[in-house]
Design a protein around this nucleic acid. Structure first.
Lengths: 139, 139
DNA sequence: ACACACTCGTTTCTGTGCAAATGAATCCCG
DNA sequence: CGGGATTCATTTGCACAGAAACGAGTGTGT
């Protein structure tokens, strides 16, 4: 068959995405050992939007109900977030940033930006912008 | 503080990577329900290079020893690969594609290429090439 | 007022993914 | 040839990530 239709693993978008993600996770873990990327995303979102119900929060950070529950549980154990019942809707569990969580996020936000920068550092500023613009369209 | 240094989750490369990966995984799972992306990567590599020791194979698909073991275990259970002791090095476990595994990979390779295409479909051919070229440099 | 649909949170199951520790086997250097 | 350094596979522990099923609560239409 034609060589240009052969399946070459190294050329597949999924495989490349996985490897880039691995590198990014390693950079993040080295710079911010207190929490994972996923946990930090939750802290960031709570900081942006304020308290939210658990499921709402999950949708706001692209995690399904089962995943966000685990993340919130671990953040609760770390005392970075707290949960409380919603008085107006007894199904809802409101998730709030604790003072400790707020302090950690504030203290680490600049480092987190540097992590993003380091991940992108093999590219020029212009290339970084182009990459991000292309990637966002694949969302 | 300067607004251009604010931490916006949606602008972070790690978050965008995660969401693009989610979309890709969903497309793959719908098209090729028999195996996961990770498992398919192992089949592809074995098909490219022939039998390899478990750890060698892991390095060839960017999985650490613990991860490749789990993937090989599940592929073995599915009878898509088989393992055998290396006669020349008793530490080694040689992993081989079974006839069933080879048949599955051959039958699904074209579909897998379509999955990559569909993931990239929001972009023009030219943009797709540029994105891949940029991403590979972040590996 | 009542039934039905929907949402919310939870649990279980399967499958990655990495760190660290372990024991067995092999390699290499002096 | 002997012993320390490496490599190999395994195990354990933790952290996502989605699918499916569930009970409890809420909302809607008639």
């Amino acid at each position: 068959m034609a060589a240009d239709t052969a399946y070459r693993l190294d050329d597949q978008i999924g495989y490349v995405l996985r490897r880039v993600t691995q590198r990014h996770l390693a950079i993040f873990a080295a710079a911010i050992p207190e929490v994972t990327t996923t946990q930090f995303a939750v802290l960031a979102r709570l900081s942006e939007t304020g308290p939210e119900s658990q499921n709402q929060l999950g949708r706001a950070v692209a995690m399904d109900a089962a995943t966000i529950k685990g993340v919130v549980d671990r953040l609760t154990r770390l005392e970075l977030v707290a949960t409380a019942a919603d008085p107006t809707d007894r199904r809802r569990l409101i998730v709030t940033l604790t003072p400790l969580g707020n302090t950690l996020f504030t203290a680490r936000a600049a480092t987190a930006l540097q992590v993003s920068q380091e991940t992108l550092s093999p590219l020029s500023d212009d290339e970084q912008r182009r990459l991000m613009a292309l990637l966002v369209r694949l969302t």
